[in-house]
Design a binder for these strands. Structure first.
Length: 609
RNA sequence: GCGGAAGUAGCUCAGUUGGUUAGAGCGUCGCCCUGUCACGGCGAAGGUCGCGGGUUCGAGCCCCGUCUUUCGCGCCA
């Protein structure tokens, strides 16, 4: 470190700084014999009566300080407690032979204290900094400043910062430019619930915090800029999940002009791959992200965010069951042309115990059960066992085996029904089978693009067509498709990046043609008036020469979660809110004063109790 | 809004079938200890068992309600 290389050995220089000549991670054997001044927190005290050890910690590291009765600092040293803040003057010396600590970078030396000044005392700790015990969330959040002193989360937050720096550098290196978009803006009628901010100047009117800078980044393209990015705060008033902060989160927001979908992929893929290679502790990262159509992803993996570390790929095996002796499936297929049978191969799952366990699990999930065939060797022949194999007969059993190239002691499970009703359960079964047969690859980052999302979906509740994702996406086939195709069959130039089953980002090539946009909204039941009223600024901009453009927005918090190997987003956020969207440290949200409310022309109408 | 789990000392947890004075480790306080790095030893303080109600001769334990935290569902274009 620079400081240690520059620090001269003269005592005079050391005393020119009030708090430190070195940081707590600086000192090495080469410094032995020199004077030093350290400041930091008392991490741990080991008092042997005649000799006393203090581990002194700062942001940079830990140094062992020693005092004995011969030292003038001894009396004060004996009074020190955990997390007090101290300034230590002393002499660096090599530790006695055999007492070095190989686990500490500074473990070859210690500082013999000659003077100790207590800079701050600490009350009894509600949350110990030392050690790696788990603590309840509310205490950690209330005393976040103590929690953040702890190793793991301190390192996570630093890693987060480094990752964001790296993302910025990689974007800038590719010719992107960072823009700032407004925080106080207009409510957008689609999507998540908005956070509203009352206007003092305009009684009864409200700003909204942006759910994402979506419209702004498109307007930046229409304003003649190109290659926008921003580490953008986004605000959504929706409930939390382990991987979803309530209230606010950050996106690497990106938009580019004159691009096709491939151009966006080529810009973003190296950034993510690079950052995962840089910060992923050397774990292998997918080199070329495969493209998987939304439709295929659902059929193969039962989800639009597949975990490709799980090698299991489902297949449609309806033909093997149509007209077969397994009457349950055969009957379903005969009665409803939409019914399909999906098969989930389970290598090494061919034991009665495993299949029964899966079946019981399925019933616990509210399913009638989970049919299966087990393959076993009998008289050098591979045969199928279990009720289904008996019912469909050896020929079909063998055809299914051959289709999946199954071997002895493998099994295969079946789910039947309309795809839209079974895909979710089938996906869960795939995950469970992968986990329970130990087939999920560990220690790697498996990426893919999910492409060709449907433009619309059927809203069963309101009996109408809805935008399935982003209403600003360009439909594949353009106006022609909107005019002539069944809307539910139209795909959009809309895509997601998925890593290890985590949806990292979604993006789209935008709809930049006003007539296409008008038609697209019309199909979802919105008139031009609504379009003008809700998206007036952007719709107007489309009338004055909008470039073709598109973008994407990877979620920064989730990237950091994956790279820190943390299952909970609060472990990678400095000052997170709890699940009820409360900041227990700052006590937010809190009541407003009557004066504040009066200025804002707000009268409260609180619920009972 | 709904469902699962948890709530016992400052902190992490144990607590048997409902039965005497609710325990341990860490921390705190006091005493001892000259080579520890999870230092060690002796001792002490520290509890409305989340809260309210019920059942019972008797409740940390059983029942009902409620609050808090968390995980999931809904929600998140």
């Amino acid at each position: 470190m620079g400081a240690c290389a520059l620090a001269p050995k003269s005592r005079n220089f050391i005393m020119t700084h009030a708090y430190r000549s070195h940081k707590c991670g600086d000192l090495r054997a080469q410094h032995a014999g020199s004077e030093t001044r350290l400041s930091g927190w008392v991490h741990r005290v080991r008092d042997h009566g005649g000799v006393l050890f203090l581990d002194v910690r700062d942001h940079y590291g830990l140094t062992q300080v020693v005092a004995d009765p011969a030292s003038p600092a001894f009396k004060i040293a004996e009074t020190l407690r955990s997390e007090w803040v101290v300034r230590i003057d002393g002499k660096v010396r090599v530790r006695l032979a055999g007492t070095e600590n190989k686990d500490m970078p500074t473990g070859d030396i210690e500082v013999y204290a000659t003077e100790i000044e207590v800079l701050s005392q600490a009350a009894e700790l509600p949350l110990p900094v030392f050690g790696d015990t788990e603590y309840p969330e509310d205490i950690r959040l209330k005393y976040r400043f103590l929690d953040l002193r702890r190793d793991r989360i301190h390192a996570n937050i630093m890693k987060r910062g480094s990752i964001i720096n790296s993302l910025r550098r990689r974007m800038v290196d590719q010719g992107f430019f960072e823009f700032q978009t407004p925080i106080l803006t207009a409510s957008s009628p689609e999507g998540a619930r908005d956070y509203l901010v009352p206007s003092r100047v305009h009684p009864g009117k409200f700003y909204a915090l942006p759910q994402a800078p979506q419209q702004f980044k498109q307007l930046i393209m229409m304003s003649g800029f190109d290659r926008y990015f921003q580490i953008a705060p986004c605000f959504r008033d929706e409930d939390a999940r382990a991987d979803r902060s309530p209230g606010e989160f950050y996106q690497l927001d990106i938009e580019m002009s004159f691009v096709t979908q491939e151009d966006v992929f080529n810009a973003v893929e190296p950034v993510l791959r690079g950052v995962f290679e840089e910060f992923g502790n050397g774990l292998p990262v997918t080199q070329k992200f495969p493209h998987i159509a939304f439709k295929d992803s659902v059929r193969w993996y039962g989800t639009d965010k597949p975990d490709l570390r799980n090698p299991i790929k489902m297949q449609n095996v309806t033909e093997h069951f149509a007209g077969s002796g397994f009457k349950v499936f055969a009957g379903m297929i005969a009665n409803d042309p939409k019914v399909e049978v999906w098969a989930i191969p389970a290598e090494t799952g061919g034991s009665r115990a495993f299949c029964d366990r899966m079946n019981a699990w399925a019933q616990q999930q509210g399913q009638p059960g989970l049919g299966y065939i087990m393959y076993r060797e009998e008289d050098t022949q591979l045969v199928g066992a279990g009720p289904i194999a008996k019912n469909i007969g050896p020929e079909r059993t063998e055809a299914i085996r051959a289709h999946f190239n199954l071997h002895q002691n493998d099994a295969i499970f079946f789910v039947a029904g309309q795809p839209s009703k079974i895909y979710k359960f089938a996906g869960e079964a795939r995950t469970k089978i992968g986990q329970d047969t130990n087939r999920i690859e560990q220690n790697c980052f498996k990426f893919c693009w999910i492409v060709d999302f449907p433009m619309y979906e059927w809203n069963e509740e309101d009996k109408k067509i809805d935008f399935s994702h982003n209403p600003f996406s360009m439909p594949q086939g353009g106006l022609d498709a909107l005019n002539n195709q069944d809307p539910l069959t139209i795909n959009a130039y809309q895509y997601d990046i998925v890593c290890n089953g985590v949806e990292l980002s979604s993006g789209a090539i935008r709809n930049h043609r006003p007539e296409v946009m008008k038609k697209a909204f019309e199909l979802a039941g919105y008139s031009e008036e609504v379009l003008l009223e809700k998206f007036g600024g952007m719709y107007r901009a489309f009338q004055f020469g909008a470039p073709p453009h598109g973008g994407i927005a990877p979620g920064v918090d989730r990237i950091v979660m994956l790279l820190c190997n943390e299952p909970n987003i609060r472990e990678v956020v400095l000052f997170p809110m709890n699940q009820q969207a409360e900041d227990l440290l700052m006590s937010a949200p809190s009541s407003a004063t009557p004066k504040q409310l009066r200025e804002l022309h707000i009268r409260l109408n609180l619920p009972e109790n």
